[in-house]
């Protein structure tokens, strides 16, 4: 990643988001590195910026569910339930074809901006994450279940979903 791009990302993240999230991550302005945590309000802008700088190959999005853990002696105040959404983009033309990924932390009812308008390939990947994890992608044109039947209840990749849930009359 070139220094100019890093500077631009830093400038973007320095801007206070229009509506600050209730629970901002501890240090949004950490070093520009793989896996950095980006406020949800900046997610779409960051993708736009990266696309303009050659990161044009849509790779993947991976959402994960982090339920609130029980308070322990080590951690008396465990963090509340949250979702993490990691987005990966790749620059296929630069030397070394670098991939870059960042992560957005969401409260349970919070939505993340969809980037389907930038990357058509995000369509099915985001639908899959909604289907399996239950993360809502705002402004997605067709946010329906992808892998499971449309009348399915629940999101199987959440940690509180039992792996052997029955589904009458087939299993």
């Amino acid at each position: 990643m070139s220094p100019e791009l890093e500077a631009e990302i830093a400038a973007l993240l320095a801007d206070p988001p229009a509506d600050p999230p209730a629970d901002p991550p501890a240090d949004p302005l950490q070093v520009i590195a793989e896996g950095m945590i980006v406020p949800a309000a900046h997610h779409h802008a960051l993708a736009t910026l990266l696309k303009a700088h050659g990161y044009g190959l849509y790779v993947t999005v991976a959402a994960s569910h982090w339920p609130q853990e029980k308070a322990s002696r080590k951690e008396p105040n465990p963090p509340p339930e949250r979702f993490e959404v990691a987005t990966v983009l790749r620059n296929p033309t630069a030397p070394g074809a670098p991939a870059f990924w960042w992560s957005v932390h969401l409260a349970p009812a919070e939505a993340i901006d969809s980037i389907v308008d930038l990357f058509a390939g995000a369509d099915w990947q985001e639908r899959e994450q909604w289907d399996l994890v239950g993360v809502v992608f705002a402004n997605h044109p067709n946010l329906k279940r992808l892998m499971l039947p449309e009348d399915w209840q629940g999101h199987p990749l959440r940690k509180d979903y039992a792996i052997d849930t029955p589904h009458a009359p087939w299993r």
Binding site: L57, T60, P92, F119
Partner: peptide
């Protein structure tokens, strides 16, 4: 590119 095609499909469409 936008659809995230790489491999033979991407290379058949000119993504080097």
């Amino acid at each position: 590119l936008e659809l995230g095609l790489s491999g033979p499909l991407g290379r058949a469409s000119g993504i080097d």
